[in-house]
Every structure is written in structure tokens, then in C-alpha cells.
């Protein structure tokens, strides 16, 4: 299993993603600089969290023009699994590889906490082996994670089974109080129609070792390994 982690100026979860993939998941992992354009040959592409280009203009707005995004688009259409985490999710939205947009959190401020997630679909390479009756725990850390899409788009996402994760309470109920950022329908992660591009705000790479408080993130890496 060969993975790469993209590095933009201002990426700050690149090293964490690298560590989780190489140490916890056992993937052969490489960093790829934002000026590269060829991303062929990888079984997984990770767009990590951080503040690419200082979040200038708005999160992900500049990164989507980086040369490496040409490679990401090409691989997306080839069906290579691509996961955008936090800022990576924002970049995928800006690049149009996923539908919708990201707004400031409803409380306006940055928010860091552990959240509980419900897996809405196992029909993705990232969630294929996840037991949906088990809720996942992982941290969020963002100021702009309030996912927004029009009613029409939400309906399409639902009809196409593209909603992958929702914030929920400890019983698995998606409620207003379990929603940390005001995201529409409690959405924490979505995939594209062809199901190989996943964007999510929570950080699975920070929940990939027991000593860090949880290993639910490894369920994603395991699904990816199993799929290949």
C-alpha cells in the first residue's frame, strides 16, 4: 500500500498524517510537494489539515490553484482513493472535487474537541470495513468546519449515499447539541459520486494510536488496506 501526503506551505497536519499512515497503518508513505503535478502510482492520496497559504482569502481558496491539484484531479477521475482532512476537505470543496462550501463555525471561534461520529455509509473504500453500529471518536480542530450545501444539493447527496460521517451524541443521535460547528444536517464528511474522494473535518490521523486517546482513525486505514 503506497500513500502520499501533500505538503502545501502552511500545511501543519502533514507530519501527523505521515506518522499515522506509516507507523500505525504500515503504509509506504511519501511527502509530495505542492509544486509536483504527477501523482500516479499511489494507492492513497492524503490532503492534510493546516492553513495552506495562511488561509489567505479563505480556507483552501489558493491551494486549489497549486500545481499539485492538477495531479489530484487526474487521480480523482482515475478512481484513486483521495482523502482530504480538515483543510484538505476545504481544498477539495474549493477545487470542485466535492460539492458544497465551508462557512465559519456558528460560534465564530476556532473549536477543538473530541467528537462522536456516525458512519452513514460503508460503500466507500474508506469505510468498507467499519461496523456502522459502532460510533467513532476523533478530534476536530477548525474555525471553518460549518459545511453548507443547498437543500437541493443535500437531497442529491442523500439520494446518492454521499454523506459519509455525521456528528452525533453518545447514543448515535444526530442532534443540535452534538453538532460542534453548525454544519448542515450534522455533516462531518462526504464523498463524491464515484465514491473515491472523501472530505472530512475530524482528524482520523490524530486518533490512530491508543496513547493519543483512541484508535478509531485506524478503521479508515484498515478499510483502505482491505480494499486493495
Amino acid at each position: 500500500m503506497k500513500a502520499c501526503v501533500l505538503v502545501f506551505p502552511g500545511s501543519n497536519c502533514d507530519r501527523d498524517s505521515y506518522h499515522a499512515l506509516s507507523v500505525s497503518a504500515g503504509f509506504k508513505t511519501q511527502y509530495v510537494w505542492h509544486e509536483e503535478t504527477n501523482l500516479s502510482g499511489y494507492d492513497l492520496i492524503v490532503i492534510p489539515g493546516g492553513f495552506s497559504y495562511g488561509d489567505h482569502l479563505r480556507s483552501g481558496a489558493i491551494a486549489r490553484y497549486a500545481p499539485v491539484m492538477k495531479g489530484v484531479s487526474a487521480e480523482a477521475s482515475k478512481g484513486t482513493p483521495i482523502i482530504g482532512i480538515c483543510n484538505g476537505f476545504q481544498i477539495l470543496l474549493e477545487a470542485g472535487l466535492l460539492p458544497g462550501a465551508m462557512l465559519r463555525n456558528t460560534q465564530v471561534s476556532f473549536r477543538h474537541q473530541w467528537v462522536t461520529l456516525r458512519t452513514e455509509t460503508t460503500l466507500t473504500p474508506f469505510t468498507s470495513t467499519i461496523d456502522q453500529s459502532c460510533l467513532l471518536r476523533m478530534p476536530i480542530a477548525h474555525g471553518e468546519g460549518n459545511y453548507f450545501a443547498t437543500q437541493n444539493m443535500i437531497k442529491q447527496l442523500q439520494d446518492n449515499d454521499q454523506i459519509v460521517f455525521r456528528y452525533c451524541d453518545s447514543e448515535g443521535n444526530v442532534t443540535a447539541s452534538s453538532n460542534p460547528n453548525g454544519s448542515v444536517n450534522g455533516i462531518a464528511g462526504i464523498c463524491n459520486k464515484t465514491r473515491n474522494v472523501l472530505g472530512m473535518m475530524p482528524h482520523p490521523e490524530r486518533a490512530s494510536e491508543l496513547i493519543l486517546g483512541g484508535t478509531d482513525g485506524t478503521l479508515l486505514w484498515n478499510s483502505l488496506s482491505r480494499g486493495l
Binding site: 501543519n12 497536519c13 507530519r15 501527523d16 506518522h19 499515522a20 489539515g49 471561534s109 476556532f110 473549536r111 477543538h112 474537541q113 478530534p139 480542530a141 482528524h203 490521523e205 490524530r206 490512530s208 494510536e209 496513547i211 493519543l212 486517546g213
Partner: peptide
């Protein structure tokens, strides 16, 4: 206050804000 700070980036945080002392693992 603490929830406006990213406490887990770097994937070293074992005991975050709110205890007597914070603990980080050394990779």
C-alpha cells in the same frame, strides 16, 4: 478557553489542557 486552542496537532498529546500538568509522548 482551551477549546479554542488546537491541543492535539502534532499527534503527541497524551494529557491535554485541564490536568495538573500536560503530558506529551516522545515519538
Amino acid at each position: 478557553i482551551y477549546q479554542t486552542y488546537d491541543q492535539t496537532v502534532g499527534s503527541n498529546t497524551v494529557i491535554p489542557c485541564g490536568s495538573d500538568a500536560a503530558v506529551l509522548r516522545v515519538k
